[in-house]
Design a protein around this nucleic acid. Structure first.
Length: 569
RNA sequence: GGUCCGGUAGCUCAGUUGGAUAGAGCAUCAGCCUUCUAAGCUGAGGGUCAUUGGUUCGAAUCCAAUCCGGAUCACCA
């Protein structure tokens, strides 16, 4: 026996699985049809309980799996709410995601990052990994000082409390104010005859910001106090957003704590001759042999650069948790940086450097082009969530199916549907691809959407409630599955493999596509064939089991995407 | 310019360890609610899989070249 190529049979041919004969022709020196006949005879004769019949068309052997096998599979799994999930395998993975800056609120791009990170963590858990979710907060640096300077200049002591503005948005406004004031100063200098590059350096507000950064690094008390105060406003805002969208972290790292990490490593790297020092005493690594460039790892003044703290943090993560795998959910604009990071870690001999994985995702663009904060075309995360929830409220009210819900139940339902639509919309696309955010399409609740899948679930639960008193026989066997029934069993059978694929590829869109396909398959059966009024008792039992396993998989699969499902909608 | 990623229906996306007539959703058109939730179902139209060449029984998928789009190549983070 050797490896065969086995595919699912195309719907226009009879059969469930197809074996392609051409690859065997050379080694066996027989015609494709002759091989097909032999193999088909062999399989149906020796595994009659598995394969009931076969046919051969133009070198393709189509095998039909017996109905008894499918029904048996369904009998075994229809009640298992953990169906498809694996036992713990003893491996630890860290998923670092979200990683915000504390100078502005979260936007649409962050949402893709947060949903991806959360979902990949859930998929890893379902595949048997122990997962530690982490977040590195970029809470220091020149951009943070910009908001601080602007606040000192323009706020007159205003605070989020005094203005009623959410903390992260409040600070973000001063970041914008900085840029406006800076631009005015530069324009003024240019109009006075200063060249642009000099003007950008010499603008008073920029000089003040740079001085503030030095003061911060020196630990000047009033600067530290302002920094802490403004960051605390931002964190209060982030907490609200994270809670709303369902992001959480087992460990949060702050750059203000980690930016000095890696200094020892630089020294060790020098000793190991992985790094070298130039005459101006700056320290470098030469990666030209690996097809990359020379990269600086420490400035001539002894201060560390971004990549240095990344190396330090990678080592700290390992020492703290002994992780086997280290996943970074970061946009694809940092592909080069991450490549360099992994390479340096490898050369330094940092444990598990080979298991650093950059989950690189594409940018989210608007139908009108790219998001640019300067042009005010950024889609704010909080605004977007509000809009989605409001839309789900409007749709729900129009349909008028849940008039008996309490106010609290309604609020919960609107959140479930609105967030479900948004998460599904952002996760259904392959992460590595640049995607387009179309506002009209994103609030569509029909077709390939979260609410479609949620609706299928609610429908099934409605049936199961109504038939709660119907006795379930143990093993309803039937040997004449309808096509739609068989299609649904086959779809259900694929779930474990889909989790495996999503895990290997770190790709939640596999689950989104699958769960949609499953829901669609169920809906076809649902409209064509009654469950409560099935032709026979056996059929009723069979379809109840089908409904049950479909609901379980939908709930489980959607939870892997971070999406809840409502009992009614 | 170097490196990397992408180009599939009007739009948004699946499909790439090479397999039969390339699939969904949206949009358009035509049907289906006295029976389990119509946020649903059924059907129709819509394609030079960027282009050209190559590899072979067979290419959207692999290779080469070209065109187009994006990212990156900071003593920024």
């Amino acid at each position: 026996e050797k490896d065969f190529q086995v595919n699912q049979t195309k719907p226009e041919f009879e059969g469930d699985y197809t074996v392609v004969m051409f690859s065997l022709v050379k080694s066996l020196k027989l015609s494709p049809d002759a091989i097909g006949n032999q193999l088909g005879d062999h399989l149906t004769k020796n595994y009659p309980q598995l394969f009931s019949r076969y046919n051969i068309i133009k070198g393709f052997l189509n095998l039909t799996v017996s109905d008894a096998y499918w029904v048996d599979l369904l009998n075994k799994n229809h009640n298992d709410t953990c169906y498809g999930k694996k036992e713990m395998n003893g491996n630890k993975v860290m998923v670092e995601y979200s990683s915000p800056n504390t100078n502005k609120p979260l936007h649409l791009g962050h949402l893709r990052n947060n949903f991806l990170g959360w979902s990949v963590a859930e998929i890893l858990k379902a595949s048997g990994y122990e997962v530690i979710k982490s977040c590195i907060v970029n809470d220091r640096g020149i951009h943070i000082c910009k908001s601080m300077i602007a606040w000192q200049l323009f706020a007159n002591g205003a605070t989020p409390e005094s203005t009623g503005v959410k903390g992260d948005h409040f600070v973000g406004e001063y970041y914008v104010k900085f840029n406006d004031a800076y631009k005015l100063e530069v324009d003024k200098l240019v109009s006075e005859g200063v060249d642009k590059a000099t003007a950008e350096k010499e603008a008073p507000i920029m000089k003040a910001t740079q001085q503030m950064l030095l003061d911060w690094e020196a630990g000047k008390p009033e600067v530290m106090e302002l920094w802490k105060r403004m960051n605390s406003w931002v964190y209060a805002g982030f907490d609200i957003t994270y809670k709303r969208i369902g992001s959480d972290f087992d460990i949060t790292y702050y750059e203000s704590n980690t930016y000095l990490l890696g200094k020892d490593i630089v020294k060790q790297g020098l000793d190991k001759k992985v790094f070298y020092q130039k005459e101006d005493s700056s320290i470098w690594i030469d990666l030209t042999a690996d097809g990359l460039d020379e990269k600086i790892v420490q400035r001539k003044d002894g201060t560390s650069v971004y990549i240095t703290q990344d190396i330090g943090l990678a080592l700290q993560k390992y020492e703290q948790y002994r992780i086997n795998q280290n996943i970074y959910v970061i946009g694809n604009e940092q592909n080069y940086h991450m490549k360099v990071l992994q390479l340096i870690c490898r050369k330094l001999g940092i444990p598990n450097a080979d298991n650093i994985h950059h989950l690189s995702y594409g940018m989210v663009e608007l139908t009108t082009g790219k998001m640019k904060s300067r042009e005010g075309t950024v889609v704010d995360a909080d605004d977007l969530v509000d809009e989605m929830v409001a839309t789900s409220k409007q749709h729900t009210e129009e349909l008028g199916k849940v008039k008996d819900f309490t106010e609290a139940e309604l609020e919960e339902l609107y959140d479930t549907i609105g967030l479900g639509a948004m998460k599904f919309y952002l996760l259904r696309v392959d992460p590595k691809k640049t995607m387009v955010f179309n506002p009209e399409e994103s609030i569509d609740f029909h077709g390939f959407t979260g609410p479609f899948v949620q609706y299928t679930y609610a429908r099934i639960k409605s049936i199961l409630r109504k038939m709660a008193n119907t006795p379930m026989t143990n093993d309803p066997m039937t040997n004449d599955l309808l096509k739609l029934e068989k299609d649904l069993i086959i779809a259900a059978e694929q779930y474990p493999a889909m989790i495996g694929q999503a895990c290997n590829e770190h790709n939640p869109s596999v689950i989104a596509n699958y769960v949609f396909h499953l829901a669609k398959t169920f809906n076809s059966l649902y409209t064509e064939h009654s469950i409560a009024n099935a032709e026979t008792e056996e059929k009723k039992q069979l379809r109840l089991q089908l409904a049950s396993i479909t609901a379980n998989i939908i709930k489980s699969g959607m939870s892997l995407l971070g999406i809840k499902v409502p009992e009614r909608m």
